[in-house]
Amino acid sequence: MSNISVHERDIVIPGEVLAEGMDYLPGENTYRENEKIYSKSLGLVSISGRVLKVTPLSGPYVPKIDDKIIGKVIDITMSGWRIDTNTAYSALLNVRDATTRFVKKEEDLSQILAIGDYVVVRIVNVTSQNLIDVTMKEPGLYKVSGGRIMEINSQKVPRVIGKQGSMISLIKTKTGCEVTVGQNGLVWVKGTPEGELKAEQAIKLVEEKSYLEGLTDRVGKFLEQ
């Protein structure tokens, strides 16, 4: 007989027992040992059928293929740029993945992207050692100009975007800002100085109160003020 000892959206800490018996299956951030399922992270329980999952409340960003991230150019190499991804690992952006135009052999790459520039890129490959390849040659990927870059906890990115982008479109329309969220937790906000400030505060509010229900209404109210 199997016993489940937690409810949906309960907060659990590492090592907490989620369920006993073989009727349940360990999902993300959980593990099974001797018929019991334990949490492997501080987070919220989510139950889908027989699978128990823990959604972490905090934690590092783990690079995944196809993620759109915001990075900073930290070095220029022979054939491209090294991009800081706000993780323990930097990414490589090759010249041919950065621009559609022809780049001559002896051309100065800093004319295209200089050290310190921010770029919105997509991850094309990640190896087991977390070596990352990125591309900028797609619609919606570009070099960032103007505005401000802010940093949030990467686990909160889905909440900042909201269901079908509800949260982010709310912030965009109410503040009149352009907002781009990278999966790695860097956010680019561009608009009027007041709008940028308001948007930044709203995003911080989402980050802090992400575990509450009815968050979109709360942010809506905050932006009305």
């Binding site: 800490i13 590492p14 593990y31 905090s58």
Partner: peptide, 11 residues
Amino acid sequence: LAQAGIPMKDM
């Protein structure tokens, strides 16, 4: 470590 979200088997 738990608050930092580092994967941990237990406390």
